[in-house]
Simulated assay, not measured.
Amino acid sequence: MKYITLLILITLFSCNKSLDLPNVDEASWQSDSNGCNGNRFEQLQSIQTDKDLIKGLNQDEIIAVLGKPDQNELYKRNQKFFIYNITPTNCPNKEDESPRQYLSIRFNATGLAKEIIIYQE
């Protein structure tokens, strides 16, 4: 019985996805709420490089690597979007930059990231 339990534990831990984005400084990204410090803008190319690693992660995993989103949007059919501002938006003592850039992560009805797009308005 001990061997079966050990085998199950090994199997569970070996199937977990790595939550590391090798090209992104996650702590710097997370601390730059609304893009006010410019850290997110500096990491724009790194996010583009790691885009495929973000796809397939669930909402909790996204929050673990990128932090809480600046905005959440809900759409029909249980689709959800996380919005991370890249250029300063709603920053105290700082004007909003134009054009505005933000990272949008679309989740499907099962809660997995399906689309990662960087928008520029």
Rank of each mutant, 00 (worst) to 15 (best):
T5W: 02
I8M: 01
I8H: 01
I8A: 00
L9C: 06
I10V: 12
I10Q: 05
T11L: 05
L12A: 11
F13M: 02
S14K: 01
S18W: 06
L19A: 10
L19P: 01
P22D: 04
V24G: 10
A27G: 05
S28D: 14
S28E: 13
W29C: 00
W29A: 00
S31I: 08
G35I: 03
C36A: 09
N39T: 02
R40V: 00
F41G: 03
E42W: 04
E42D: 15
L44W: 04
Q45E: 15
Q48G: 07
Q48I: 15
T49H: 06
D50Q: 04
D50F: 05
L53H: 02
I54R: 00
K55C: 07
K55N: 13
G56S: 02
L57G: 05
E61N: 06
A64N: 14
G67P: 01
D70L: 05
Q71W: 11
N72F: 13
R77A: 09
R77I: 10
Q79Y: 07
K80D: 09
F81A: 14
I83E: 07
Y84W: 12
Y84T: 09
Y84P: 08
I86Y: 00
P88A: 10
P88D: 13
N90E: 14
C91R: 08
C91G: 07
E95S: 14
E95P: 07
D96R: 14
S98E: 14
P99V: 10
P99Y: 12
R100M: 10
L103C: 09
R106F: 08
R106P: 08
A113N: 03
I116D: 06
Y119D: 11
